[in-house]
């Protein structure tokens, strides 16, 4: 495999052929914000939070292959604002009420808002959609109010579990995550599925019943540090 170098915000980093910009950045300890991308899942490039400038063009870092000599911009005021606007719009599109959500503190959407200095989503009107709950399954519940349609559960179920419990339905603003049956109890979803594991759903949509408050608010994953800090710590090792 050919090794080469390229720069992110002027810092020269190593990469191998076949790596995306994000994979090379992760190895070098440079964090690029992301929501729909997750380690162990196929890249999708749909949330656009990982947008970087490569050679002056906007590309999603999770799908764009790294290239020798490429000059990538990541932490610039312009990209920071663009990412913050995207995250704000996600807050306005669903019903994201952090104070009542059991995922608060473990939620990647919320943690991304903290990292991008979003103190309050107030710029756009709230869509306040009416979305049904699904608590039919004995061990799992779905609160679609919090779904951001990242599709991580879809890819986890199809590619890792080999099941296809979840799938996209509809187009444009109407696109949402649908199920392979009438309700969750009708599907073959199991608590042991990778798609149901807490790391796959970035928000509080896929809920594992009876464990929600096992870890109290204030002692959760992103109470310990900003999202991406474990990647940034690699840089100093």
């Amino acid at each position: 495999m050919t090794a080469f170098r390229f720069t992110i915000d002027g810092v020269e980093i190593d990469a191998r052929e076949g790596q995306t910009i994000m994979e090379a950045a992760d190895e070098a300890g440079i964090y690029i914000p992301r929501l729909c991308d997750h380690e162990g899942l196929r890249h999708q490039g749909s949330c656009r939070v990982c947008t970087v400038k490569a050679g002056g063009r906007s590309v999603s870092a999770c799908t764009q292959p790294a290239a020798a000599g490429q000059e990538v911009e990541n932490e610039t005021p312009h990209l920071g604002k663009l990412r913050r606007d995207l995250v704000e719009m996600l807050f306005h599109e669903g019903n994201h009420l952090c104070p009542i959500c059991e995922a608060s503190g473990n939620c990647e959407l919320q943690a991304m808002a903290y990292r991008l200095d979003m103190t309050a989503p107030t710029k756009f009107p709230y869509l306040e959609p009416c979305r049904a709950l699904d608590a039919s399954h004995p061990d799992i519940a779905l609160d679609r109010n919090r779904c951001i349609s990242c599709g991580r559960c879809i890819r986890a179920s199809q590619d890792v579990d080999g099941k296809g419990v979840f799938g996209y339905v509809g187009r444009g603003i109407h696109r949402h995550v649908g199920l392979s049956a009438e309700d969750l109890a009708g599907t073959d979803a199991k608590l042991a599925d990778f798609a149901i594991s807490p790391e796959v759903c970035p928000v509080g949509c896929i809920i594992r019943k009876r464990v929600g408050f096992a870890t109290p608010i204030g002692e959760r994953e992103f109470d310990k540090g900003l999202i991406g800090h474990e990647i940034e710590e690699r840089r100093h090792e």
Binding site: L97, E128, R131
Partner: peptide, 16 residues
């Protein structure tokens, strides 16, 4: 949060 974005009382907006 209630002053900033409605908070808990705003839960009623989604059923409106």
């Amino acid at each position: 949060q209630c002053a900033i974005m409605g908070g808990l009382p705003a839960m009623r907006n989604a059923i409106m």
